[in-house]
Nucleic acid binder design. Sequence first.
DNA 1: AATACGTCCAACCGCCCTGAG
DNA 2: GCTCAGGGCGGTTGGACGTAT
Length: 242
Amino acid sequence: MGRSPCCEKAHTNKGAWTKEEDERLSAYIRQHGEGCWRSLPKAAGLLRCGKSCRLRWINYLRPDLKRGNFTEEEDELIIKLHSLLGNKWSSIAGELPGRTDNEIKNYWNTRIKRKLLSQGIDPASHRPLRAPVSDVTISFTKNREDKQNLDFISQEKERSSNSSRSSSNSNDSTPTQCLDLNLELCISPPAVEQTEGVSVKREVFCFDCRLGLRESNGCIKCEGFFGLSSAGVLDFRSFQMK
DNA sequence: AATACGTCCAACCGCCCTGAG
DNA sequence: GCTCAGGGCGGTTGGACGTAT
């Protein structure tokens, strides 16, 4: 189908913004507010693409932007949020007043990633780089023609359904090992297993404790759900996953 | 002083989502 | 339901700047 370009590229400036362009854009938005970005450049007398104006305003000119280095608290919050949301930079930025998605994204890619790697943590999964095999819980085969894997999975399925029927034996701890994709999403209240009518609480560590940001033994209690304080630093229910 | 290399970040690109018609 | 325009988003790039050799 194709789409018409958002602007006439032949007649637009590119690259770094000049002071004059900044002033024009700021003045226009102060006077008229943020409106139709497509028509803004023309109205403001700018030879820029509407998208470019929007980006410049949001990432640089907005008056409520916080400038300067990220604080330790912001660092930790970004790491926590990233562990929950992944690369949803705009959602993460929404929890950090005065910071932009672009800023956070850059900060993540240039600093935090390295920081986590130096701590032996995989920045993508937020898990130790050498995760113990027992952490691997759920998997899919990359190659569905890999008969061995498929056989293994069906055997495991059968075995687990049998074992659940005949009640679980806690000593039978043969780990389910089928590498590839780990979907152990810790988005749930502390897990409680029903074993022969007795509730057994498994160890569930909050993100802080996993990272070693906080020292606590039992963990989940130390901070509550998600390892976030109930004081309201972060309420995950407010996230809007777009 | 010159060059190479690494880091940082503003800006761009292209895809996706949404709402209007 | 379909098409299209506009806005938003995440990934990537390019250049400025700092540091090492």
